[in-house]
Computed example of a mutant assay.
Amino acid sequence: MKTQLVLLGCGTPNACPNASGPASAITYGEDSYLFDCGPGIVRQAAKAYHQGIDALSMDRLKYVFITHLHSDHTLGLNDLILTPWVLERHEPLHIYGPKGIKAMVEHLMLAYQADIELRIHGFEQADAKACQPIIHEIEAGIVFQNDTVKIEAFAVSHGEWPCYAYKIITPDKTIVISGDTCPLDLMIQKAKNCDILLHEVYYAAGLAQRTPAWQKYHASMHTSSYALAKIAQAAHVKLLITYHRIYHMNIQDNHEDITVKMQERDKLIEQEIREIYDGALAMGKDLDVYE
């Protein structure tokens, strides 16, 4: 068996036509562990399954770990709770996340209460227990461990509410997933010599063209290409993968070829990183698989 990192969505809050909301999966054998739950996560998991990732079949989507409660990282939660259940997942979904995740999920379940009741008591006779998620509000430390996988949450900085990155250790890989964060020395410590660091990033030159207010916001909430390069170089990561790339361009303008513009910005972000970091580097795309 081998560990696989599957990028289900590399996007941001922008409604980008070729990047689903932030979500990734780590698989080992028949087991899968999801990290963040952006829009489109279930359909993306289905695509990956049909491309040969058996651990992402609907009945195996049992664990999700949320970095923070921003909408772009959680809008897929109702889909993940209900769709695999409708497709006959016979176990409840375990949801791990910061304080506030319990209230969020309880409200989602109330919103769909009529649908749930009809599916359970109507013609479908669906499994009542399997649709009730098990919620774990976490603090920093080891939040999950079984015979093959250990998952540690550690606090990062992304505004005023609790946010966590995750360090996942399997028999053959150590992978760190940043979530959204400004640059931290702790990231260097936790990612030291890891096999893969999956980290958010913004285009530094692009931010310099924006208003002072936006510059202040992004500099305090996210990680620039140069700051990320310093982290990866200092941590000696074996592979740096960027996702949740903030391009600082108008993705909503349909007069532009967005795909071409994003490819251009990817190259520019890569150039900025390469000014400092000389290790292995990938600009992650939806449905990329890394082993």
Results as ranks from 00 to 15, higher is better:
65 F>R: 01
151 I>S: 13
80 L>D: 00
129 K>A: 15
53 I>H: 07
91 E>Q: 08
113 Q>D: 10
109 M>G: 10
113 Q>M: 11
141 G>P: 00
73 H>S: 13
91 E>G: 03
185 D>S: 08
98 P>C: 02
156 V>P: 13
48 A>M: 06
55 A>W: 07
122 G>A: 05
176 V>R: 00
98 P>G: 02
97 G>L: 04
99 K>V: 07
144 F>M: 04
117 E>D: 14
51 Q>H: 12
51 Q>T: 12
69 L>Y: 09
46 A>L: 11
152 E>G: 04
81 I>Q: 00
105 V>E: 09
141 G>W: 00
180 D>H: 15
173 K>L: 10
173 K>C: 11
134 I>W: 11
172 D>P: 02
122 G>R: 08
116 I>Q: 08
164 Y>D: 03
153 A>Q: 01
177 I>E: 08
134 I>S: 02
95 I>L: 01
82 L>Q: 10
180 D>W: 14
140 A>R: 05
115 D>I: 13
158 H>I: 07
49 Y>T: 03
59 D>A: 15
116 I>W: 05
108 L>D: 11
160 E>L: 09
118 L>G: 12
94 H>P: 08
160 E>N: 13
172 D>Y: 06
57 S>H: 04
67 T>H: 15
87 L>A: 11
163 C>G: 14
64 V>G: 05
75 L>G: 08
150 K>L: 00
137 E>C: 03
94 H>W: 03
135 I>R: 10
47 K>E: 11
102 K>W: 10
161 W>A: 14
124 E>N: 14
179 G>K: 06
103 A>E: 13
95 I>R: 10
53 I>Y: 06
121 H>N: 15
89 R>P: 02
166 Y>E: 10
144 F>I: 01
46 A>R: 13
119 R>P: 05
90 H>T: 10
162 P>I: 03
56 L>S: 03
179 G>F: 12
